[in-house]
Design a protein around this nucleic acid. Structure first.
Lengths: 115, 115
DNA sequence: CTTCAGTATTCATTTTAAAACATACTGAAT
DNA sequence: ATTCAGTATGTTTTAAAATGAATACTGAAG
């Protein structure tokens, strides 16, 4: 009698700060790519994202975190670069932990949805 | 020593179906406004949304639910209208229940975030 | 058999966000 | 003092999405 379609709950998690959205999965991916490549430029390329956009995201994160998540090196050998700070590393870990807990709960609590 | 900014976790919940996103808070608001006004036209006005957009959302919901969430009356007294089906009423209730449980969990599990 | 308000559908326009482009700045190394 | 690759920033293009305008369709009621 039922069409028996499958429905599932999806959840998007992000961190909010007084001025609005502060840290979601997109910025986390950017942080991870900065860690991997050592620069905003290469992280952006990796993600097929415009450098300008990536740079702005980093700027925003750094200003709104209590302490910067990304340390930028200006000029010098190789033109400079960027690396994660201790706070940046921690942010990635905390975000994934929070996200994991919430998503697991969401799956566990919502079986057999019907619409 | 800390700047003591306040951070909170935000969660967005939606229902996914085989072909992608099926039902989120936006469509739920639309359903509620259809219930309130008795037509897609007036629901759209209420939400300052284009009729075209509202109509498409209803169409999508109806096709992808196992049974339609909105019953449309074509022509006749007053030109017709739209009202929620039993399934539509149920969808609103189920969605809010699921959303509430997940959001409460998210708040409960994430105190004292630092970035 | 005309009226009427809402549904159904197409097409042109506007708005918006993202990407692309361009250009200057930085500082270690040579 | 020139090179070099990445950071920093403004301006222009492009593309996507939402809106608005226009038109036909529907059927109960008078």
């Amino acid at each position: 009698m039922n069409k028996d379609k499958k429905y599932s709950v999806e959840v998007r998690v992000w961190i909010e700060e007084t001025e609005g959205a502060f840290l979601g999965i997109g910025k986390i991916w950017l942080l991870e790519n900065i860690r991997k490549t050592g620069s905003i430029t290469n992280a952006a390329k990796e993600m097929k994202m415009a450098y300008r956009q990536a740079w702005q995201l980093v700027e925003e994160m750094n200003q709104r975190a209590e302490s910067p998540l990304v340390a930028k090196l200006l000029g010098g050998k190789g033109g400079g670069g960027a690396k994660l700070t201790e706070a940046g590393e921690k942010a990635i870990a905390v975000f994934y932990e929070v996200e994991k807990r919430i998503k697991e709960f969401a799956q566990r609590e919502t079986q057999n949805l019907k619409f």
